[in-house]
Simulated scan of single mutants.
Amino acid sequence: MASGGVEGSAELRIDGAAKRFGEVAALDGVSLQVARGELLTILGPSGSGKTTLLKVVAGFEKPDAGSVKIDGVEITALPPARRDIGMVFQNYALFPHLTVERNVAFPLEMRNVTKAEIARRVAEALALVELAGYEQRLPRQLSGGQQQRVALARAIVFNPRLLLLDEPFGALDRKLRETMQLEVRRLQRRLGLTTIFITHDQEEALVLSDRIAVMNKGTIQQIATTTEIYERPANDFVADFVGESNIFHGTMSGTGVVTLEGGRQLRVSTSAVPGKRVGVLMRPERFASGGINAFAGEVVESVYLGTSFKLRLACEDGLELLVRQPARGELPAPGARATFGIDPDAIHVF
């Protein structure tokens, strides 16, 4: 388990993966590629197909169509035990009657590794997840975070070509979840291990990923870097699912001008041609007290969030906006009048 890149860390390619359960298309022709050493997060709501896709990669589900390849070699029909893939689940899946040491050693024992090599690799894996000294404890004697570290050590101890994590922090409290996110990212970068991470948590995806694949109804809506997914979503679904948003629709009525459905005109920075129907995204935190595109109205809801104020503004022309502002001074009370603006460069047109 060498630092700086696991032996055999691999490139993954999925082409046209399809899977139906009765009338439901869990996967509808999904294709994606994960580069060697990359951490790709598959993000989507419940029922979007993300866990089915993970099971197809792991070998727990056979696709109705399509192929799965690791380093160019097709593994679609290969049983899970022969894929050399490490997995971490939300429920840890530890053996309750085995010690930490024996749990981590299990994949090596199944591969007939020598006792001396098992001892060396287990010690190294436990040190990597900061559990040295816990070798003889049973799972029930560990906290949730410690149990998840044991599961992670077990998943990497045999030098897998690929690591799959299926919502591994869902059972942890928020603070511990955030700590584990950073630990997984640190470990993944240190090992250079090709990783697919499944989550429905948008913040988790933004923290962890090199790239994010957003899924909905069995299809990939967009694959891009974290910045691009947030700043330049491809469609309404991605814009709404990732982060807070104000989404409107309209028509390009001139160069750099969108006329919204209610008649309001916005100055925007886009190459979209006049006459084209477009979507408009304005992130709540992009508004300021001034700006070219001004929105005046009444505060109908205001919430103090520590570092920011979250306001809902009912505009005079009927639009409703979500606005976030730094928490300075008094929190505007419902009924107060306010005006906010947003620069053309801060508006995403899609």
Results as ranks from 00 to 15, higher is better:
E7I: 10
G8P: 14
S9R: 06
D15Y: 01
A18H: 03
F21I: 07
G22R: 06
A25W: 05
D28K: 10
R36M: 01
E38Y: 02
E38W: 02
L39A: 10
G44P: 03
G47Y: 07
E61L: 15
D64C: 03
I70L: 15
I70K: 04
D71W: 04
G72T: 04
V73K: 13
I75M: 10
A77R: 15
P80C: 12
P80M: 11
A81D: 11
L94S: 07
F95R: 04
N103E: 11
R111P: 01
V113Q: 11
T114M: 00
E124F: 00
A125M: 05
L126E: 12
L128G: 02
L128F: 00
V129K: 00
G133P: 03
Q136C: 01
R137F: 12
G144D: 08
Q147R: 15
N159D: 13
N159H: 04
P168W: 00
G170R: 05
R174G: 02
K175Q: 14
L176K: 05
E183T: 12
R185H: 06
L187R: 12
H200A: 08
D201H: 10
E203F: 08
E204I: 01
S209M: 04
I212Y: 09
I212W: 09
T219R: 15
Q221H: 14
A224C: 07
T225K: 05
T226P: 00
T227G: 07
Y230C: 04
D236W: 04
A239Q: 09
D240N: 14
D240A: 13
V242F: 03
N246D: 11
T251E: 15
T251C: 08
G256L: 01
T259Y: 07
T259F: 06
L260Y: 04
G263Q: 13
R264I: 14
T270C: 08
S271M: 11
G275S: 04
G279T: 13
M282C: 03
I292V: 15
A294M: 15
G297F: 07
E298N: 06
V299M: 07
K310E: 14
L311T: 08
R312Y: 02
C315T: 15
Q325G: 00
Q325I: 10
A327V: 13
A327W: 12
P332V: 11
G335C: 05
R337W: 01
I342N: 13
D345M: 06
D345Y: 05
A346G: 00
V349E: 06
F350M: 11
